[in-house]
Structures are given as structure tokens and as C-alpha cells.
């Protein structure tokens, strides 16, 4: 059971959160201009990293804000949390 630091509400139990998958996937500006392969890449393909993973969480039972988490998928350690629109600490992934 993880303990996650909501950027607004502070450290809370995982039970209050909803997982949202990989972060920083931007919806294409003009989907109609994409090939099937490009669209499928946006739609389906994910990094699935072993190690530090940038992912989205929502404090669903709290302030209902979505935010980003850097989490090590091996140790489950949370290295950072940051708000939407912000870049992960330490620069680009």
C-alpha cells in the first residue's frame, strides 16, 4: 500500500488515489492529419519502464486534482510529485 504525497493535500494513503498511467502523453493537435500508425502510437504504445516512471495519479477521494509522480517501478519509491503542466524535477526524462 503506497503512501502518495498529493501536491496539495500532503501524504495520503493509496486508497484515496486513482492511477492514471503514463504521464506527459500529449493529445495530438490534429488527429485527422495522423496516419493509423501514428494514431495507434498515441493511443496504445506506452514506455512500460523498469525504473523511474513518470505517471499520473488523481487524488480521487481528496481534492480531485490530477498530478504527476516519478515512481521507481522496481522499488516503488516515489522520487517526486509535481503538478500538471510542470516538467519532472531534474529536467526532461
Amino acid at each position: 500500500m503506497l503512501q502518495i504525497e498529493c501536491p496539495w493535500c500532503g501524504a495520503r494513503d493509496q486508497e484515496e488515489f486513482q492511477y492514471g498511467g503514463e504521464a506527459h502523453i500529449v493529445r495530438p493537435e490534429n488527429p485527422d492529419a495522423l496516419t493509423d500508425i501514428q494514431w495507434a502510437d498515441y493511443l496504445f504504445n506506452r514506455a512500460n519502464v523498469k525504473g523511474v516512471h513518470a505517471e499520473q495519479w488523481c487524488h480521487a477521494a481528496g481534492c480531485r486534482r490530477w498530478f504527476n509522480v516519478l515512481r521507481d517501478t522496481v522499488s516503488y519509491k516515489i522520487l517526486a510529485v509535481y503538478r500538471p503542466g510542470e516538467q519532472p524535477p531534474g529536467g526532461e526524462e
Partner: peptide, 13 residues
């Protein structure tokens, strides 16, 4: 509801 909030907060703020 969560899905709508997600689009508003993360994609179209």
C-alpha cells in the same frame, strides 16, 4: 466525472 476532470486539468486547462 473523473475522465472529464482529467481532460480539463491535464489536456485543456
Amino acid at each position: 466525472m473523473a475522465w472529464m476532470e482529467r481532460w480539463l486539468q491535464t489536456e485543456w486547462p
